[in-house]
Computed example of a mutant assay.
Amino acid sequence: MPKTLERTRKAIAKKKGPINALHQFSRDSKRLHRAQVRDEKLEKIAAARRKKDQPYIERVAFFQEALKQNGGEPFSIETIQELIKTYVHQYDEDLEEIKKARRPGQPAKAKEDLLKLKISHLQKEYHSGFR
Rank of each mutant, 00 (worst) to 15 (best):
I119C: 03
E40R: 15
D94G: 02
D113Y: 02
A21T: 15
K10P: 00
F62D: 04
D94P: 00
T8L: 03
K99S: 14
K109E: 05
I19P: 02
R34E: 15
P55G: 06
A11V: 02
E43P: 00
P2N: 01
Y87L: 01
G105W: 04
K10T: 03
V37W: 02
K100Q: 14
I84V: 15
F62R: 05
Y126C: 09
L117K: 12
L5E: 09
K41M: 13
N70V: 01
I12R: 05
K30W: 13
I12P: 08
R27E: 15
L5H: 05
F75P: 08
Y91D: 15
K14D: 08
L32G: 11
A110D: 07
N70S: 09
R9T: 06
S29A: 14
G72S: 10
Y56P: 00
S120E: 13
A47N: 07
Q81E: 15
K14N: 08
L5Y: 12
A66C: 12
S29F: 14
K15D: 07
P18E: 07
V88K: 07
Y56M: 10
T79N: 13
A66I: 06
A61C: 05
R9C: 04
I12V: 12
A35N: 12
K44C: 01
L67N: 11
Q69P: 00
G72N: 11
L83D: 05
N20W: 10
P55H: 04
F25A: 14
P74Y: 10
S29N: 15
A48R: 14
K100M: 11
R50Y: 06
R103P: 06
